[in-house]
Amino acid sequence: MTLTLTVPPGAKVRVRITNENGETTEIEVEPGETVTITLPAGSTVRVEVEVVDPDGRKRTETFTLKP
């Protein structure tokens, strides 16, 4: 399973991925970048995406991906 994120110009994104064992991976994606994350097959993962807009506003979306 893959997750692809494209960050709009001016925004910053931090992604936290937590697996079933509670292990967390965190990455930051710079403005204008596209990143593809390969998620472990057969695992349920929690993905938290934090977006910081150019004006400093933050918003966070959290979702769970199941196999």
Results as ranks from 00 to 15, higher is better:
Met1Thr: 03
Met1Phe: 13
Met1Gln: 03
Met1Tyr: 11
Met1Trp: 14
Met1Asp: 07
Thr2Trp: 14
Thr2Phe: 13
Thr2Cys: 15
Thr2Arg: 06
Thr2Val: 06
Thr2Ser: 06
Thr2Ala: 08
Thr2Asn: 05
Thr2Pro: 04
Leu3Ile: 05
Leu3Ser: 03
Leu3Cys: 14
Leu3His: 08
Leu3Met: 04
Leu3Pro: 11
Thr4Ser: 05
Thr4Gln: 05
Thr4Asn: 06
Thr4Met: 07
Thr4Pro: 09
Leu5Ile: 07
Leu5Tyr: 07
Leu5Ala: 07
Thr6Glu: 10
Thr6Asp: 15
Thr6Asn: 12
Thr6His: 11
Thr6Phe: 13
Thr6Arg: 06
Thr6Tyr: 10
Thr6Met: 11
Thr6Leu: 14
Val7Lys: 04
Val7Pro: 01
Val7Cys: 09
Val7Gly: 01
Val7Asn: 02
Val7Asp: 02
Val7Met: 09
Val7His: 11
Pro8Lys: 11
Pro8Ile: 13
Pro8Asp: 14
Pro9Gln: 07
Pro9Leu: 05
Pro9Tyr: 06
Pro9Thr: 10
Pro9Asn: 09
Gly10Cys: 06
Gly10His: 04
Gly10Ile: 04
Gly10Pro: 09
Ala11Lys: 01
Ala11Gln: 01
Ala11Asp: 07
Ala11Gly: 08
Ala11Pro: 02
Ala11Arg: 01
Ala11Thr: 03
Ala11Val: 01
Ala11Ile: 00
Ala11Glu: 02
Lys12His: 11
Lys12Gln: 14
Lys12Thr: 12
Lys12Ala: 13
Lys12Ile: 08
Lys12Arg: 04
Lys12Ser: 14
Lys12Gly: 08
Val13Ser: 05
Val13Tyr: 01
Val13Met: 04
Val13Pro: 10
Val13Lys: 02
Val13Glu: 02
Val13His: 00
Arg14Glu: 13
Arg14Lys: 08
Arg14Ser: 14
Arg14Thr: 14
Arg14Asp: 13
Arg14Ile: 08
Arg14Phe: 12
Val15Tyr: 06
Val15Asn: 00
Val15Ala: 04
Val15Trp: 05
Val15Cys: 09
Val15Phe: 03
Val15Arg: 00
Val15Ser: 03
Arg16Met: 05
Arg16Tyr: 05
Arg16Pro: 00
Arg16Ile: 05
Arg16Gly: 10
Arg16Leu: 04
Arg16Cys: 09
Arg16Val: 04
Ile17Ser: 11
Ile17Leu: 10
Ile17Tyr: 15
Thr18Gly: 10
Thr18Phe: 12
Thr18His: 13
Thr18Arg: 05
Thr18Pro: 09
Thr18Asn: 09
Asn19Gly: 11
Asn19Ala: 10
Asn19Arg: 10
Asn19Ser: 09
Asn19Val: 15
Asn19Thr: 11
Glu20Val: 04
Glu20Gln: 05
Glu20Cys: 11
Glu20Gly: 03
Glu20Ala: 05
Asn21His: 09
Asn21Trp: 07
Asn21Ala: 09
Asn21Phe: 06
Asn21Arg: 09
Asn21Ile: 12
Asn21Ser: 06
Asn21Pro: 12
Gly22Thr: 09
Gly22Val: 07
Gly22Met: 10
Gly22Gln: 09
Gly22Pro: 06
Glu23Ser: 06
Glu23Tyr: 10
Glu23Trp: 13
Glu23Leu: 06
Glu23Thr: 08
Glu23Asn: 09
Glu23Arg: 06
Glu23Val: 10
Glu23Ala: 08
Glu23Ile: 08
Thr24His: 08
Thr24Cys: 12
Thr24Asn: 06
Thr24Gln: 08
Thr24Met: 07
Thr24Asp: 06
Thr24Phe: 07
Thr24Ala: 12
Thr24Pro: 08
Thr24Val: 05
Thr25Gln: 11
Thr25Pro: 08
Thr25Asp: 05
Thr25Ala: 08
Thr25Lys: 06
Thr25Cys: 13
Thr25Leu: 09
Glu26Lys: 04
Glu26Leu: 04
Glu26Val: 04
Glu26Gln: 05
Ile27Gly: 11
Ile27Ser: 10
Ile27Asn: 13
Ile27Tyr: 13
Ile27Trp: 10
Ile27Arg: 11
Ile27His: 11
Ile27Val: 10
Ile27Asp: 09
Ile27Thr: 09
Glu28Ala: 08
Glu28Met: 04
Glu28Pro: 12
Glu28Thr: 04
Glu28Tyr: 04
Glu28Asp: 11
Glu28His: 07
Glu28Trp: 02
Glu28Arg: 05
Glu28Gly: 10
Val29Asp: 15
Val29Glu: 15
Val29Gly: 06
Val29Asn: 15
Val29Ser: 12
Val29Thr: 12
Val29Phe: 13
Val29Cys: 11
Glu30Gly: 03
Glu30Cys: 11
Glu30Leu: 04
Glu30Pro: 06
Glu30Gln: 05
Glu30Val: 13
Pro31Trp: 11
Pro31Asp: 12
Pro31Tyr: 09
Pro31Val: 14
Pro31Thr: 06
Gly32Lys: 14
Gly32Ala: 14
Gly32Asp: 11
Gly32Trp: 14
Gly32Met: 13
Gly32Cys: 13
Gly32Leu: 08
Glu33Asn: 05
Glu33Gly: 13
Glu33Tyr: 11
Glu33His: 10
Glu33Lys: 06
Thr34Pro: 12
Thr34His: 11
Thr34Met: 11
Thr34Ser: 07
Thr34Tyr: 14
Thr34Glu: 09
Thr34Cys: 13
Val35His: 13
Val35Arg: 03
Val35Gly: 05
Val35Asn: 06
Val35Thr: 08
Val35Pro: 09
Val35Gln: 04
Thr36Trp: 12
Thr36Ile: 15
Thr36Arg: 12
Thr36Ala: 09
Thr36His: 08
Thr36Leu: 13
Ile37Met: 08
Ile37Arg: 11
Ile37Cys: 12
Ile37Gln: 09
Ile37Tyr: 08
Ile37Asp: 04
Thr38Arg: 07
Thr38His: 08
Thr38Gln: 06
Thr38Met: 07
Thr38Asp: 07
Thr38Gly: 09
Thr38Ser: 06
Thr38Asn: 08
Thr38Ala: 08
Leu39Trp: 10
Leu39Gln: 05
Leu39Pro: 11
Leu39Val: 04
Leu39Asp: 08
Leu39Asn: 11
Leu39Cys: 14
Leu39Glu: 09
Pro40Gly: 06
Pro40Thr: 14
Pro40Leu: 14
Pro40Arg: 12
Pro40Ile: 14
Pro40Cys: 15
Ala41Asn: 10
Ala41Cys: 13
Ala41Val: 05
Ala41Trp: 14
Gly42Glu: 10
Gly42Ala: 13
Gly42Thr: 13
Gly42Arg: 14
Gly42Asn: 08
Gly42Asp: 12
Gly42Lys: 07
Gly42Val: 14
Gly42Met: 11
Gly42Ser: 14
Ser43Asp: 14
Ser43Asn: 13
Ser43Gln: 15
Ser43Gly: 14
Ser43Ile: 13
Ser43Arg: 15
Thr44Lys: 02
Thr44Asn: 03
Thr44His: 06
Thr44Asp: 04
Thr44Arg: 02
Thr44Tyr: 11
Thr44Gly: 04
Thr44Cys: 14
Val45Asn: 08
Val45Pro: 02
Val45His: 07
Val45Phe: 11
Val45Tyr: 14
Val45Ser: 03
Val45Glu: 02
Val45Thr: 07
Arg46Trp: 09
Arg46Met: 12
Arg46His: 05
Arg46Gly: 02
Val47Thr: 00
Val47Tyr: 01
Val47Gln: 00
Val47Asn: 00
Val47Pro: 00
Val47Arg: 01
Glu48Thr: 08
Glu48Trp: 03
Glu48Ser: 03
Val49Leu: 05
Val49Asn: 00
Val49Pro: 00
Val49Cys: 07
Val49Tyr: 01
Val49Trp: 02
Val49Met: 04
Glu50Gln: 04
Glu50Trp: 02
Glu50Pro: 00
Val51Glu: 01
Val51Ala: 01
Val51Pro: 00
Val51Asn: 01
Val51Gln: 02
Val51Ser: 04
Val51His: 06
Val52Cys: 06
Val52His: 02
Val52Ala: 02
Val52Gly: 01
Val52Met: 04
Asp53Trp: 14
Asp53Ile: 00
Asp53Ala: 03
Asp53Glu: 04
Asp53Val: 00
Pro54Asp: 04
Pro54His: 07
Pro54Arg: 06
Pro54Thr: 04
Pro54Gln: 10
Pro54Ala: 12
Pro54Glu: 10
Pro54Gly: 03
Asp55Cys: 14
Asp55Asn: 02
Asp55Val: 00
Gly56Thr: 00
Gly56His: 00
Gly56Asn: 00
Gly56Met: 00
Gly56Phe: 00
Gly56Gln: 00
Arg57Thr: 14
Arg57Phe: 04
Arg57Leu: 03
Arg57Tyr: 02
Arg57Trp: 02
Arg57Gln: 09
Arg57Glu: 03
Lys58Gly: 01
Lys58Asp: 00
Lys58Pro: 01
Lys58Arg: 05
Lys58Phe: 02
Lys58His: 03
Lys58Val: 11
Arg59Glu: 01
Arg59Trp: 15
Arg59Lys: 03
Arg59His: 11
Thr60Ile: 13
Thr60Gly: 00
Thr60Asn: 01
Thr60Phe: 05
Thr60Lys: 03
Thr60Glu: 01
Thr60Gln: 02
Glu61Asn: 03
Glu61His: 15
Glu61Gln: 06
Glu61Trp: 15
Glu61Met: 14
Thr62Phe: 07
Thr62Cys: 15
Thr62Pro: 00
Thr62Val: 14
Thr62Ser: 06
Thr62Ala: 03
Thr62Asn: 02
Thr62Gly: 02
Thr62Asp: 01
Phe63Gly: 01
Phe63Met: 04
Thr64Met: 07
Thr64Cys: 15
Thr64Ile: 15
Thr64His: 06
Leu65Trp: 15
Leu65Lys: 00
Leu65Ile: 14
Leu65Phe: 15
Lys66Ile: 14
Lys66Glu: 13
Lys66Asn: 13
Lys66Gly: 15
Lys66Cys: 15
Pro67Glu: 05
Pro67Arg: 01
Pro67Thr: 14
Pro67Asn: 12
Pro67Ile: 15
Pro67Ala: 13
